[in-house]
Design a protein around this nucleic acid. Structure first.
Lengths: 161, 161
DNA sequence: TTTTACAGGACCGGCTCGGTCCCCTAAAGT
DNA sequence: ACTTTAGGGGACCGAGCCGGTCCTGTAAAA
């Protein structure tokens, strides 16, 4: 359903949790698992990946744990997603060009690319810092959207398939 | 990778194909399969679903086939996606509230909802008619984006995981 | 030198996705 | 009427990925 994987979601939750905690001391996987009520092995795996990718700094041994490697204000959601689950693209051809038989002369390819850019852009403009602001910021920003509004979308169905 | 399913992608391609062809006569699944180079059974299944959902009009029997049930200019991509793969939501809790243990007191829930709305909005503003315009329209529209730009996203990695 | 905690794997069951097949019914043509 | 065309609605199925577990290192602190 145009979902990102749960793992990625968890990863962001973990980063948010770290951003909220005392930054001067590392936090263990166990701790974060408890905070977020996620299974420890999963948390562990995620933290390792995030550390490997440079988003977290890891500290081994007793009194070890993980801490944010950068300012939450400079870390975009898009970045995290890209790291955790690869390039952001709704369509196959967006992520891995050259696999689709009809890529040449596909009538809808170009517009999809643009849609992808829009989504990528939207995600790139949200920082970890913003995610953890409790007050919902700037609701009016939603009013401004790219693409013209043809008739304000009569499209809010439920389930399907 | 924040993908929609191939089926959905195909569905949109099929709609686009129909929008491009002569609207005064129905087109068969076989025809459309040939046009799009997609396997016939898949095309068939998709067309059935789209017809059932009211996006296409179906005509049985000899000289039968499918035709668009509405003006391409009034059909949003978001609508098609919603029909073909359910509610648009990046996170589980967006589509099916009440399943996540940490939904209460989840620190990042609200912002995600807003991100979902942005994406939903972006998709809602693209019509089938726009998808098939060959000339790429309005590149400058991308400049205007919701959410502030913290540092214009240094995040275009490749692969991962 | 013992304990704590990360590093890096392998591994695995289940579910969904992409794809196929089959039998039925409706509409045209003859 | 009967045959042909083409959609309607299923069931079905294999492969792949996803979410989750586990185990064996190794580094750092006490």
């Amino acid at each position: 359903m145009i979902r990102m994987s749960k793992l990625t979601d968890y990863g962001i939750v973990l980063l948010a949790q770290l951003a909220v905690r005392d930054a001067s001391v590392p936090h263990t996987a166990r701790e974060l698992a408890a905070d977020t009520r996620l299974p420890l092995p999963v948390v562990s795996k995620l933290l390792k990946a995030l550390a490997r990718e440079g988003l977290l700094a890891s500290h081994r041994g007793a009194k070890g744990g993980y801490s944010l490697a950068r300012d939450p204000a400079t870390l975009s959601v898009a970045h995290v997603i890209a790291i955790l689950e690869g390039p952001i693209a709704l369509t196959e051809c967006g992520a891995h060009p050259g696999l689709c038989v009809q890529e040449r002369d596909c009538r809808v390819r170009a517009p999809w690319q643009r849609i992808n850019e829009v989504i990528q852009g939207a995600l790139a403009r949200v920082t970890l810092a913003e995610l953890i602001e409790t007050a919902t910021p700037r609701v009016d920003a939603l009013a401004t959207l790219p693409f013209p509004a043809p008739e304000a979308a009569p499209c809010a169905p439920e389930r399907a398939r």
